[in-house]
């Protein structure tokens, strides 16, 4: 019967011989592997963390965009002519047609100033009697009008100046 070859190197006493070099290599390999795993795990969790932060920031950007749109829309709603009119009415302003009787309108058209009270934004209108008098109030323009250039490019100029149009006229009641 053929003798089985012993797989382990043995010394003279028959004990297994330990190669310190092999052990060292093994330790280094295991160390490298462990370090690799450690760094990989660290990178994985860092990536996860960054991903989560990124996702949160992205959501914040989306939310901000939505909020910006919502605010822009709210501003436009408040600036819309219908809403401005409603606010004006809430503050006591009335349409000219509502407070001028046909007689008053005709009288004013004919130059009768007794029904019209002088007013300015600098000083409040003065009335001597207790009866209601109609008054036309004008908002002043903030800048001087410019010469009209050719075409409608002047429209843009008007906007840049951001001035209040002279025909922003409101009519109210003064007691």
């Amino acid at each position: 019967m053929k003798k089985r070859a012993h797989p382990i190197n043995s010394n003279e006493n028959g004990r297994a011989a330990i190669s310190w070099f092999n052990v060292l290599v093994m330790v280094v390999c295991v160390g490298l592997l462990a370090t690799g795993f450690f760094f990989a795990a660290r990178q994985h969790f860092t990536a996860m963390d960054l991903g989560i932060k990124n996702s949160k920031l992205r959501k914040q950007v989306d939310d901000m965009e939505t909020e910006k749109r919502r605010l822009l829309l709210s501003r436009e709603v408040v600036r819309s002519p219908g809403e401005v009119k409603r606010i004006a009415i809430r503050h006591g302003l009335r349409d000219a047609d509502e407070i001028f009787t046909p007689e008053q309108a005709n009288a004013i058209d004919n130059g009768d100033r007794s029904l019209v009270v002088k007013t300015s934004l600098a000083a409040p209108a003065k009335t001597n009697s207790n009866e209601e008098k109609a008054v036309k109030a004008f908002y002043p323009v903030s800048g001087k009008a410019k010469t009209s250039p050719a075409g409608m490019s002047h429209l843009d100029e008007t906007d840049k100046q951001k001035k209040v149009s002279s025909d922003l006229m409101a009519t109210t009641k003064i007691r």
Binding site: I108, D109, G111, R113, V116, K118, T119, S120, L121, A122, A123, K136, F138, P140, V141, K144, A145, S166, D167
Partner: peptide, 17 residues
Amino acid sequence: ADDLFTGLVGDEVAVEK
């Protein structure tokens, strides 16, 4: 000419022909 455009001179409101 600018005053003509603004429709307001001083603090007076005028009715015109």
